[in-house]
Simulated assay, not measured.
Amino acid sequence: MANLHIEDTFKLLKELVSIPSPSGNTNEVIQFVEEFLSELNIETTRNRKGGLIATLPGKDNSRHRMLTAHVDTLGAMVKEIKPSGRLKIDLIGGFQYNSIEGEYCQIETSSGKKYTGTILMHQTSVHVYKDAGKAERNQANMEIRLDEKVHNAEDVRALGIEVGDFVSFDPRVEITPSGFIKSRHLDDKASVAILLQLIKQVKEEKIELPYTTHFLISNNEEIGYGGNSNISPETVEYLAVDMGAMGDGQSTDEYTVSICVKDASGPYNYEFRKKLVRLAEENQVQYKLDIYPYYGSDASAAIRSGHDIVHGLIGPGIDSSHAFERTHKTSIENTAKLLYHYLQSEMI
């Protein structure tokens, strides 16, 4: 089997997570992906929602495949400028306030200016607040401390900061000697890096695909509708490549590819799932089957929007999803291997 260039995938992933892209403000990262594909002489188009579509021709153009991964991430918006000069925030995406306590962040104004800050409890100092450890981590109690000399709301507005400005979180990305990558936003930039590296491999090695294949880099998955449109009527198989969620009762781990059998939207296509399992077993790909109880994907969004497709969902196993995430290079490798063989397989 061809070299999957996992080290290059890690390098690309590190670049991707370092580009701020909360849902609703993804132009910079979409442009990065656009330029990556342009260097491979692959034409792309943007849909009106701002997502990016690349197409690789196949021998059979009467039936198509679509694979999708999303570049949008969790984030926040400025909800209120407090009289103290601190900022109250409103969350973008499904996560808990406690998962961002103490996190460095960036505020981007509508004019493009960028300021840094730290997300903290209002009652942070144990020397002042008796309930510092017990107070609830919620919108009322958490705020951004700006790294600017501000004393009141007027000082903040003089910087150009206003309600509705986007807040992104410092990824703190690190690759360890033991093969782990830990960072925010591995959901779903790990899968984006895998797909981009796979497209590069297909192009450079002149692999002829059996079916015309579309790759949608979506930008609204975290808010529920990233991959529900721009699906050609010829599309038969639709595969979302997203993270596998880990926790108590889950079989997903950080070392294999997770094949989802059911999430909050219901079961994924049974025949498609069995095909993915068969491909994994035939090609010595380490995998786990799993159910994600509080989860939805671009594939489930496509089904809900009425498209006549068979849908599937796979991805690398990610620990501490929607918080400070981590996975291992072997999970990235197993996911890439399964996708490599899937792209060259016959349809169900």
Rank of each mutant, 00 (worst) to 15 (best):
R63I: 12
I89T: 09
C105M: 08
V202H: 05
I259N: 08
E208P: 10
A54I: 00
S168P: 14
L87S: 11
I259S: 10
N47A: 05
I259H: 02
I318H: 02
H185N: 00
L52S: 11
Q123F: 14
E80F: 09
I348F: 06
T124K: 11
S297M: 08
E237C: 01
D170P: 07
D263T: 10
L313Y: 09
L209T: 10
L146E: 01
S218G: 10
V236C: 03
I314N: 07
Q250S: 08
E205V: 05
Q286L: 05
Y97R: 03
L195D: 11
L146Q: 01
S300V: 00
I81N: 03
L195M: 12
M1R: 10
D263G: 09
E237Y: 00
I92F: 03
L343N: 11
S110D: 09
K149P: 02
M1P: 09
G244F: 01
L74Y: 04
V126F: 08
L279G: 01
N283C: 05
A302W: 00
G112Y: 03
V150I: 00
A153T: 06
T330D: 14
I89M: 12
K14H: 11
D187F: 02
M121K: 15
L239F: 07
D253P: 08
Q197W: 07
H311Y: 12
R46M: 04
T44M: 04
A190P: 05
Y268V: 00
P293T: 02
A302E: 02
N3T: 11
I89L: 14
S23N: 03
T9G: 14
H341P: 14
E154L: 10
R65Q: 03
I259M: 04
G58P: 10
G244D: 04
A240C: 13
C105Q: 05
N141W: 08
E222M: 07
S125F: 05
L343R: 08
L159W: 06
A132S: 15
S345T: 08
K337A: 04
Q344I: 03
A135Y: 07
H307Q: 12
G50H: 11
L40C: 09
L343G: 11
R304A: 13
Q31H: 13
A264V: 04
L4W: 06
T176H: 04
P20T: 12
E80M: 13
G164K: 08
A301G: 14
L74F: 07
E28V: 12
L343H: 11
S320E: 13
G85M: 07
A336S: 15
S265I: 01
N230I: 01
N41W: 00
E346W: 05
S300E: 01
A336H: 15
V150F: 00
Y129P: 01
E154S: 13
D242C: 12
V29W: 09
N98T: 11
G117S: 02
E7Q: 15
